[in-house]
Nucleic acid binder design. Structure first.
Length: 453
RNA sequence: GUGGUUGUAGCUCAGUUGGUUAGAGCGCCGGAUUGUGGUUCCGGAGGCCGCGGGUUCAAAUCCCGUCUUCCACCCCA
């Protein structure tokens, strides 16, 4: 038995049959909703040029990138000095020119730029594929995980934002997952920067502000000071924190103050427009949350994040980006998109027991194999069952019935049909209901009829 | 990337201050049942104690390294 030691790379996982069924259920549900809203599927390769992946994001996202070595004798082409100095980043540039995608948005931008002449705008596409990040794994953070994205490119209309929120609402309602969609706008943040007069510190402000619900007002203030933000910024934090108990955030004095800035006014208009267009079901799951600060640095307008009280961490997110294709040479294409985190939704549903019963998805009937004489009729029988769209399988060897029954039992097959000497003589099949433990005899016509139900 | 944590049978885990032959439950295989699973009873197989080094008369146990797991950061979806 002593098999060779096999293992998986850090953060990579296998999925067994039951897990795949559940994952496919999530994917199917999301896909169906995307399709209903008029999005069309695309797929892109797992690898992109590093130059594409580095198009956005700086040194930080570079750390998360899985790089792929060049083919051939790649070290020959590397600079000797760089090698001797062990200057990793210099060497990498010379021995690796492609990497695994770490999200689906950058590949989308690349796709749109490359196929701009074939695309009719607005371009509504969805994409459900794995992405990879060289992060240190922990709960809800995997090195290989799936994103389910829907994006609209080439339309500035806020109707798109509205529809994407409707998609969130519909998908999570189908899953019976109670969620809140946190809504804000990057422009609100820009407005705050105007208020404090430190427009250049937006990233630092954002990173610290994002931790508000986690570490509290004072620690955020400490971090702001450490990051070089002024006292005006520090004083903003308590009023932002107070918004969470506000019954109508948009009517708060904080928003009124923001509205006096040019960016802030624009952000307020965006949010009010989106809210005014949403029906009650969608409005009721929205939390206007100006402390919502996370998001990639390419977001420029409305931003969303989906959270559930049943799960730590977000299970969906999205936002508008005005110039994502600009870095690849196609300016003035505004886009907005959302993303579902398949793996986190899976974890949540698994923990909360929200998956439906998939037992009907497996084989419905197992035909036992007694001896070779019965094989020709058995082939015919199993074929006719399959013709009738009954999920049927024939046990592939004439082993002990005990073993064949155990196979059916372990696999959750609800019916076992026996065709041995007795049945061949009488012309009636024996069928056993595995759940009830009862068995009956019936002719083939009745058997088919019975199994079709 | 930083700090911590975990690893013993297929799985979940015991294993005393270092001390003979490393255990349990579940699962697996066989039999009771040569045409019947799931329940019951009886029997059996299965271990480089993550890997490498060190300390010791002696290491699953102590030390170092490494890989892996999970957690908290950093950051991020």
């Amino acid at each position: 038995m002593a098999g060779k030691k096999v293992s998986l790379p850090k953060g990579m996982r296998d999925f067994g049959p039951q897990q795949v069924r559940k994952r496919q259920y999530i994917l199917d549900t999301i896909r169906e909703v995307f399709e209903i809203f008029g999005y069309q599927p695309i797929e892109t390769p797992v690898m992109e040029q590093l130059s594409t992946l580095n198009g956005k994001g700086g040194a930080e996202s570079d750390k998360l990138l899985f790089k792929v070595l060049n083919s051939g004798d790649f070290l020959k082409k590397a600079d000797e000095n760089a090698l001797n100095e062990k200057a990793s980043s210099k060497v990498i540039a010379q021995i690796s020119e492609k990497g695994l995608r770490y999200d689906l948005t950058v590949p989308l931008a690349r796709y749109v730029v490359m196929h701009q002449n074939d695309i009719t705008f607005p371009f509504k596409r969805y994409q459900m594929q794995p992405v990879w990040r060289a992060d240190r794994p922990q709960k809800g953070r995997y090195r290989e995980f799936w994103q389910c994205d829907a994006d609209v490119l080439g339309s500035e209309s806020l109707i798109n934002e509205m529809e994407l929120i409707q998609i969130f609402e519909r998908v999570f309602k189908t899953f019976n997952i109670p969620v809140k969609v946190h809504l804000s706008s990057r422009k609100l943040l820009a407005g705050m920067m105007e208020l404090i007069g430190q427009e250049d510190k937006m990233i630092d402000f954002t990173v610290a502000l994002d931790k508000l619900d986690k570490i509290g007002v004072e620690k955020v203030q400490d971090e702001l000071r450490a990051r070089g933000l002024n006292e005006k910024a520090v004083e903003l934090i308590p009023s932002i924190a107070a918004l969470s108990s506000e019954k109508d955030v948009m009517k708060s004095s904080f928003i009124a103050a923001l509205e006096k800035t040019s960016n802030g006014a624009e952000g307020v208009r965006e949010i009010n427009t989106i809210m005014s267009r949403l029906d009650f079901a969608c409005r009721s799951i929205i939390i206007i949350d100006p402390s919502l600060a996370r998001g990639l640095d390419y977001y420029t307008g409305p931003i969303f994040e989906v959270k559930s009280e049943l799960f730590k961490g977000s299970i969906g997110s999205g936002g508008r980006y005005d110039n994502l294709t600009g870095i690849f040479g196609l300016p003035n294409v505004s886009g907005v998109g959302i993303s579902f985190g398949l793996d986190r939704i899976y974890d949540l549903m698994q923990e909360q027991n929200l998956f439906p019963d998939f037992s009907a998805a497996s084989t419905k009937v197992l035909l036992t194999y007694f001896d070779e004489e019965k094989l020709p009729p058995l082939f015919g029988i199993v074929s006719m069952m399959r013709e009738a769209n009954i999920k049927a399988e024939l046990y592939p060897a004439p082993v002990k019935l005990k073993k064949q029954f155990k196979y059916a039992n372990d696999k959750g097959i609800p019916y076992v049909v026996l065709y041995g000497d007795e049945e061949a003589d009488s012309g009636e099949f024996t069928i056993k209901d595995m759940e009830k433990g009862e068995q009956f005899k019936m002719d083939f016509e009745k058997l088919l009829e019975f199994l079709k139900q």
